[in-house]
């Protein structure tokens, strides 16, 4: 029993890791395709049918590019930067509940790598570690544009983490638990948290855009002002790691968003389905639903990117400090008042 659990867990870790990487890989392709469709174009269509081998071609290109470490850069930190960025992006997926417990051959397995009771705090910790990858990389490059980009990224992430945390607090007042698995289970059927916390969701969404450095908050790599931002000096696969980390972050934050607000693996009519297909197939359908939500969320990230122009830096800070934080605090007060009145 112990060993089967252990083996299942290791298999699950490998699968989740592979899925994160594949999703990130194909997000780059999806981004280009989606951008093309939004602009009435076709997009990449030369590598393989409909261009589906494009990410492989891009990856191969990245590996074959010349590896440059600037003379005045700090070589150790220069390599640590992108490694840390991709590492922190990958470990966030450990606490996400991908589905209900699945029954295979009489054994029950959790579709979650680890169910720690402070899951949300873990996610927050990992997310705030993500800044170090960018900060170290930008600092080690010994380039003013990299440094400015890194500083922008750091201040942006710190500012938006506050309102993100505050918007989560309102949610936690309703759920009463920090464990992501319990939060997902509470939203059984159609009782998704987004119906109870619409303002909190909007705040979380905006902050998620800022945390992943996605447009309209992609100031750290604002080409017109900063050349390439924090990865100006990076080339080859180290640059690839930074870009890859952004897409993995997008995937993880979509998963977190789906778990916290959009019901995770829950969908209306899941009890009926579970009663009809049995305890092995039903969780798999739940996982598929969960991934559907994640993919729509990733699509939404891209949709916004190709719609809204970039903020100016002072506007970004204004929005973060003068709009989102007061709104988040108001949301907490509102949630407290309403829950007290209803009880």
């Amino acid at each position: 029993m112990e060993t089967t659990d252990l083996i299942f867990r290791i298999v699950l870790i490998v699968i989740i890791f592979a899925i994160s990487l594949v999703v990130a890989m194909y997000s780059t392709y999806a981004e280009r395709k989606v951008a093309a469709f939004f602009q009435d174009r076709i997009g990449p269509n030369r590598a393989g049918p409909w261009g589906i081998l494009q990410p492989l071609a891009d990856g191969g290109k990245m590996f074959l590019k010349e590896e440059i470490i600037p003379t005045n850069a700090t070589p150790f930190l220069f390599i640590v930067g992108p490694s840390l960025a991709i590492l922190t992006a990958c470990i966030g997926s450990a606490v996400i509940p991908w589905g209900q417990a699945i029954v295979i051959g009489g054994h029950t397995f959790d579709l979650q790598v680890t169910d720690i009771n402070v899951g949300i705090l873990y996610i927050f910790g990992v997310v705030s570690l993500g800044v170090y990858g960018i900060m170290i990389g930008g600092w080690a490059s010994n380039n003013k544009y990299s440094l400015l980009g890194a500083i922008r990224a750091a201040s942006q992430n710190i500012s938006y983490e506050i309102s993100m945390g505050l918007s989560i607090i309102a949610l936690l007042m309703l759920t009463g638990t920090l464990s992501l698995k319990e939060i997902a289970e509470q939203q059984h059927g159609f009782a998704w948290n987004v119906w109870r916390q619409p303002l909190g969701f909007v705040l979380f969404l905006v902050c998620a855009f800022a945390e992943t450095n996605r447009s309209p908050f992609d100031l750290p790599e604002c080409e017109t002002e900063l050349v390439g931002g924090y990865h100006t000096e990076y080339s080859s696969m180290k640059l690839g790691f930074y870009l890859f980390a952004e897409y993995i972050n997008m995937f993880i934050s979509s998963a977190v968003m789906a778990t916290l607000y959009w019901g995770g693996y829950n969908y209306p009519g899941m009890d009926w389905v579970a009663a009809h297909v049995g305890p092995t197939i039903a969780p798999i359908i739940g996982v598929v639903v969960f991934f559907g939500k994640i993919f729509f969320s990733i699509f939404f990230f891209m949709w916004v990117r190709w719609t809204i122009p970039r903020f100016r830096y002072d506007q970004l800070m204004d929005l973060g400090w003068k709009v989102l934080i007061p709104l988040a605090i108001a949301n907490i007060v509102l949630t407290g008042v309403i829950t007290t009145l209803l009880n």
């Binding site: 469709f37 939004f38 602009q39 174009r41 949709w303 916004v304 719609t307």
Partner: peptide, 16 residues
Amino acid sequence: GGLATTMKHFFKKPVT
């Protein structure tokens, strides 16, 4: 409004 506009273009025939 902006998202609606871009979504309209999403379903347009590409001009390429």
